[in-house]
Amino acid sequence: MHAGARLLAGEREPASGWARGGRRRWATPRGGKAEPRDCRCNLRRVEDAAFVVPVFNEATVIGTVIKEISRCGAFVVCVNDGSTDGSHDEILSAGAYLVDHPINMGQGAALQTGIEFARMLPGVRRFVTFDADGQHRVQDALKMLDVLDESGVDIVLGSRFLGEVNGASLMRRTVLKMAVQFSNATAGVKLTDAHNGLRAFNRHVADTLRIKASDMTHASEIIEIISRNGYSYLEVPVTIDYTEYSISKGQSLLNAVNIAFDTLLRKVSR
């Protein structure tokens, strides 16, 4: 079910451009640690894509996530959103581009910053937003990039409910589905999953997207922007791996109330 395990014939080695050279420090594993999942060959390389990863206190997992993404040769832009743990150093030593927020501004703000930074990188044509806690799969992102190119839409959104959900409670699934209903009713865009952090989009979206919501409501806001700016969009099934870590890091279900409140307030105040 993943489109990832494909190797296109005639793959070339990454061009060693000035902007990318010298930053691949992870090529030599630190501390002699073995990399169990190293199967460098089965990910196609997408060198015109930038993965934007908002990071807030993810020091324990961010290194692995960065290495996982880097295997496909994409730019990795990590926005450290005022982390108080070792995220800053982890990002640097894993070899990703690091953008440091001087204060904590929330995930939506971090996404916006990351997108604006990625726009400055030479040769970037496609953008992916990716969660730092390891719940997304790089293969899914690659599949979405394929869909983006083949279909010619502006933005491709990942959907848990077209794909698989591993390890989510019935309660969590119910709340998420209610969120979808709410979003469909308020945003004017019909989706099966309103709050998925995995998205792929083209330059046009990257240039015109302006996320103002700083906190978790940015997911609903992005959907509203899709509707307002008239982006064409598609949903693609993705697999979310809910681990104990990602659930403990993720938003509490009660936060759905905040999201609903802020969405309605945005409606009346604009």
Binding site: W18, A19, V79, Y97, L98, V99, D100, H101, P102, I103, M105, A109, Q112, T113, E116, F117, R119, M120, L121, P122, S214
Partner: peptide, 23 residues
């Protein structure tokens, strides 16, 4: 946030030699 974002972008652009690409 706009101010903080600008600081973050300027700092990162400086680190990676992208200052000329700053909008």
């Amino acid at each position: 946030h706009r101010l903080a974002r600008r600081i973050a972008l300027v700092e990162a652009a400086d680190r990676y030699g992208l200052v000329n690409a700053l909008p």
